[in-house]
Computed example of a mutant assay.
Amino acid sequence: MISFNDCNWLHNHFNNINFENLNHSIIINGPEGIGKKLLTKKIISTLTNINNVSLNEEDVNPDIFILNRDKILINQISYRENKNKKTKPKWDELKGKRDLLNFIALSPVKAKNKVAALINADKIERRTQNVLLKTLEEPPDHAYIILTTSRPRVLLDTIYSRSHVINLKPLSNEDKDLWLKSIGLSEYNSYDFPSYYSPIQIYNEIANNNQSNFKEFISILDRHFSRSESQKNIIKDIMDMDIDAIIKLNFFVEFLKIILESKLRNVTLSGIYKTFALYSFSNLKISNLILEINQMRQDLYSVPQINEGHMLNVIMSELLISFKR
């Protein structure tokens, strides 16, 4: 299990926080797996003097409020009674809350401050953000709100202007390798994973014994490019991989971007991409194929029932047309 202490890139961000003069709203932005939750827990622990902070909504603490959901609704920020409903959310005596605004309005029970953390705050609708903003304009002295986001500038500008903003940037492959070595995983190389994988994502892949997925995917493409096997067999091998169709599409885009970037920067391909240096291609065709795959990904989000085999057949055919040896 990775802890805050293991992630040295988080330490400077934490040490630069002036807790004596801190805004009552804190935004932590960064890609998935960069350590936003670990930093959130560390900040909550410092503000409340509570150890072993959990971001699980079900864990009971009257001075910590957690919303960790795919979608954050307005009633979870400020409860508004619906007269058409016979029931309404009950006040939770143990957790000291019904909604965020009710929670922070009360004085701390045991801790020196109350802290609310909204994980995936980029999923908050604009109307709900406006409700939250009213609280940030005149926050109680004892209350702090932490919002984590995976995309920059997705919240109202007025929320950013009232917040202490921490931007966690992606690590370079060299820094990822140094980190893997520091936690005893020097036998693994970040170049064997997609470049968009964060350190913690790489660690999780290794911990779940999935560290070979991307290398296997690239190996299958190598066989396809060599035309040593039928396209039908190649597609079957990709479909048999134990990863979601969205991840497969992400792998295709990653591969094409690496190949395209090597040509644009005149950089020799190496490692798992070495054999692809033998092929020539049109920059425009590869760029258009990337756009096409990105559109497939959007379509798949909207209609998960789309036939995966058909998508793969289109992509694999385009690859054979686009790359020449």
Rank of each mutant, 00 (worst) to 15 (best):
185 L>F: 06
186 S>K: 05
188 Y>T: 13
188 Y>A: 08
190 S>G: 01
190 S>V: 00
190 S>M: 08
190 S>Q: 06
191 Y>F: 14
192 D>R: 02
192 D>N: 14
195 S>F: 13
196 Y>A: 05
197 Y>Q: 08
197 Y>M: 09
198 S>P: 02
198 S>F: 05
199 P>M: 00
199 P>H: 00
200 I>L: 12
200 I>G: 06
201 Q>G: 05
203 Y>E: 09
204 N>D: 13
205 E>K: 02
206 I>H: 02
206 I>N: 03
207 A>T: 07
207 A>G: 05
207 A>C: 09
207 A>N: 14
208 N>T: 15
208 N>Q: 14
209 N>I: 08
209 N>G: 04
210 N>A: 05
212 S>Q: 13
212 S>A: 10
213 N>G: 04
213 N>D: 11
214 F>S: 07
215 K>N: 14
215 K>L: 14
217 F>N: 03
217 F>E: 01
218 I>V: 15
218 I>E: 05
218 I>P: 04
219 S>G: 12
219 S>L: 11
219 S>E: 15
220 I>G: 04
221 L>K: 08
221 L>F: 11
223 R>N: 12
223 R>T: 07
223 R>P: 00
225 F>H: 03
225 F>C: 05
225 F>D: 04
225 F>R: 08
226 S>L: 07
226 S>V: 01
227 R>L: 06
228 S>H: 07
228 S>A: 01
228 S>E: 13
230 S>P: 00
